[in-house]
Amino acid sequence: MRYLLILFLSLTTVNSYSQDSTATVLPTKVKGTIISSSTDEPLSDVNIVNLNQVKGVATDENGAFEITAKANDTLHLSYLGYKSLKVRVTNDWLKFGNTEIAMTEMALALEEVTVNQLQLTGYLEVDMKQIPIQTNNQYRISGLPGRSYEGGKTNIATKILGAIFNPADFLYNMFGKKPNEMHKLKKMKEDDEIRNQLAQRFDREMLLVLLQVNKFDLDEIVNQCNYSKDFINTANDLQILDAISECYEEYKVIQRSKERKSGKKKDKA
Score class of each variant (00 low, 15 high):
G152S: 03
S142T: 14
I160P: 00
T154D: 05
Q134A: 13
I164C: 00
K153W: 02
G146D: 10
Y139D: 02
N136W: 05
G152K: 01
N136P: 01
T135D: 03
S148Q: 14
S142L: 11
G146R: 13
P132N: 07
G146P: 14
T154E: 05
L161E: 03
T154M: 06
N137T: 07
G151Q: 07
Q134D: 07
P132K: 10
E150D: 01
P145E: 12
T154L: 09
G143W: 01
G151L: 06
L144Y: 14
G143L: 06
I141T: 13
N137S: 06
N137D: 04
I141V: 15
E150S: 07
G143F: 03
L144S: 13
N137H: 04
E150G: 02
G146T: 14
N137C: 02
R140L: 10
K159H: 04
R147I: 15
G152H: 00
G143M: 03
T154A: 08
K159D: 03
Q134V: 15
I133M: 08
Q138F: 13
G143T: 08
G162F: 01
A157H: 04
I164P: 00
A163C: 06
P132D: 05
S142K: 14
G151F: 03
S142P: 01
A157M: 10
L144R: 10
K153V: 00
G162K: 05
K153I: 01
P132M: 11
P132W: 07
L144T: 13
P145Y: 06
I164D: 00
N136M: 09
A163V: 09
K159P: 01
P145A: 10
N137R: 04
S148P: 05
Y139M: 08
N136L: 12
K153N: 07
Q134E: 08
G162I: 04
A163P: 00
P145K: 10
Y149L: 13
Q138Y: 14
N137V: 02
Q134G: 05
R147N: 12
Q134F: 14
A157W: 05
G162P: 01
Y149H: 12
G143S: 07
N155E: 04
K153H: 09
G151N: 11
E150R: 03
I133C: 03
P145C: 09
S142Y: 12
G162Q: 05
T158I: 08
Q134W: 11
T135W: 02
Q138G: 15
I141H: 04
Q138C: 08
A163L: 12
G151A: 11
I160F: 07
E150T: 04
S148E: 14
A157Y: 02
T158Q: 07
I156K: 04
T158M: 01
L144I: 14
K153D: 05
K159Y: 06
S148I: 15
I160K: 05
Q138A: 14
N136H: 10
N136A: 11
L144F: 15
Q138T: 13
T158A: 07
S148H: 13
I160V: 12
Y149V: 13
Q134I: 15
R140Q: 14
G146E: 10
P145D: 12
Y149D: 07
L144M: 15
Q134M: 12
I133L: 09
T135A: 09
N136T: 10
Q138K: 14
R140S: 13
E150Y: 09
N155A: 01
N136C: 06
S148W: 13
T154S: 10
K153R: 05
P145L: 07
I141E: 06
Q138S: 13
L161W: 02
Y139K: 02
G143A: 08
